[in-house]
Write a protein that binds this DNA or RNA. Structure first.
Length: 418
DNA sequence: CATCCACTGGAATACCGGGTTC
DNA sequence: GAACCCGGTATTCCAGTGGATG
């Protein structure tokens, strides 16, 4: 260690492209106060919700659209405008309750969130478990009556809620308006899935889906505008090559017009540029950013997998290695998985459960799986990796617990049992 | 068209966190 | 404060089902 007159962080403080603006304009949670190509949608949503300002219940709305088409941004923007009004006008009795059904997807959690959202600041929070559902429901009902205004419940990723738990909570929420007039509930649902209303009971559907809005994917030039706007917020407008921005927009447009991805890509390009101590973002950096983004997604999903999913994936990649990229059947990798988990001393899950895990990992895009019938020789699912087994193993072995599998070689026919 | 392997839906069980009752 | 109630989650258990091949 050389004498450290240098500050430890000095070597990490690269040239900063972003000096004038706000860096968080390129971060995922940022809510801009301009919405290029979504101005009409924001206005339309505001119109739908406007009765709430006169203490009338607005129509329930569902917004449909693929990821990254601005659904959440529009809603957040409109919410912030409503909040401004709530703060300036004492007669506006509106509460905004945000629930992300990707995080909270069970009836108890939804009712709890609504109940907590209606609490006055001095009131104690409701218990997050323990109460019977009907008791929770009746206290929520009491809170609504007490409040006496309009509660706008925003259910982001509402399709996930319905797919997992059916529509019973929605029914309960909608029923509040029939039980009492003293307070009203308006539901604003956001869904990635255009067809999720098919899972709804017709009575729920007709009440829930009073208004619908469908947001179409952005095209390349719209994404370009969004990127340009964001780079203005971030104060890096001058540091980006025109063609780099176009490239970024074009790449994102190819993949379902996802603006979020485009912004992520731009952010990473900025970071890479800074790391390389360059002062302009160029085409090549954008391509590099795209690669890094993809890599990051894989690392993130694989390393956040539960232990047994990791073990299954490990078994699959070992077989992949043995067969040099071939696919494996349930029988094959399940047997190997049993051995691996035995060796780890963790006990193995049943085949039934592993079948579900395969389904989960297929949905995540880590593997491909399909059921194949071999006639006289039965039926099985065959799986194959979507990424190279070397890469997958590398990520898996970085795991604290799986690290002890480092020495396990694919060539080993049987694993030593300790 | 029987057969084979395991896919698959659903019921059952175990466990957890936390309230409620006596 | 022990024993019990409650809902949620993960997993197992069970049994019905699928479908190409021989």
């Amino acid at each position: 260690m050389e004498n450290s007159s240098k500050n430890l962080f000095e070597k990490f403080s690269h040239s900063s492209l972003i000096v004038k603006g706000q860096r968080q304009a390129l971060e995922p949670g940022f809510v801009p106060d301009r919405l290029p190509h979504r101005e009409k949608e924001a206005e339309q949503l505001a119109e739908i919700l406007s009765p709430s300002l006169k203490n009338f219940k607005p129509s329930n709305v569902i917004i449909f659209g693929k990821p990254g088409v601005g659904k959440t941004s529009v809603v957040k923007f409109v919410e912030s405008e409503i909040t401004k009004i709530i703060q300036s006008r004492l007669d506006a009795k509106i509460k905004l309750i945000d629930i992300n059904c990707g995080v909270v997807d069970n009836p108890y959690g939804i009712l709890l969130a609504v109940g907590d959202g209606l609490l006055e600041s001095w009131e104690e929070k409701l218990p997050f478990t323990g109460w019977p559902l009907d008791k929770l429901y009746s206290t929520v009902l009491d809170k609504i009556k007490n409040f006496g205004g309009i509660a706008i419940v925003v259910l982001d990723e509402i399709d996930k809620l319905v797919k997992k738990n059916g529509d019973s909570v929605l029914y309960q929420l909608l029923r509040i308006n029939e039980i009492t007039n003293e307070g009203r509930v308006c539901i604003l649902g956001i869904s990635n899935d255009l067809r999720f209303t098919e899972y709804l009971d017709p009575r729920v559907k007709s009440r829930l889906v009073e208004e619908t809005m469908v947001y179409n994917p952005y095209n390349a030039s719209q994404i370009y505008d969004i990127l340009r706007d964001r780079s203005l917020y971030a104060g890096i407008g001058d540091s980006i090559d025109e063609s780099a921005m176009r490239t970024c927009a074009a790449l994102a447009a190819q993949e379902h017009g996802d603006a979020r991805r485009a912004i992520d890509m731009l952010r990473i390009a900025v970071e890479l540029t800074e790391k390389g101590n360059q002062n302009r973002i160029i085409d090549d950096t954008v391509y590099e950013a795209k690669k890094k983004l993809e890599r990051d997604v894989v690392v993130e999903t694989v390393s956040s997998l539960p232990l047994h999913s990791k073990l299954v994936l490990f078994a699959i990649s070992l077989i992949d290695e043995i067969k040099n990229g071939g696919s494996s059947t349930m029988g094959e990798f399940y047997e190997l998985y049993e051995k691996v988990s035995d060796r780890m001393g963790v006990g193995s899950l049943t085949q039934r459960r592993v079948a579900d895990i395969i389904g989960e990992m297929t949905n995540l895009g880590l593997i491909d799986s399909k059921v194949q019938s071999f006639g006289r020789y039965g039926r099985t699912t065959t799986v194959s990796l979507n990424y190279s087994s070397t890469k997958i193993k590398e990520i898996l072995l970085a795991d604290e617990i799986l690290g002890q599998l480092k020495d396990v070689k694919p060539a080993q026919k049987s694993l030593p049992v300790s």
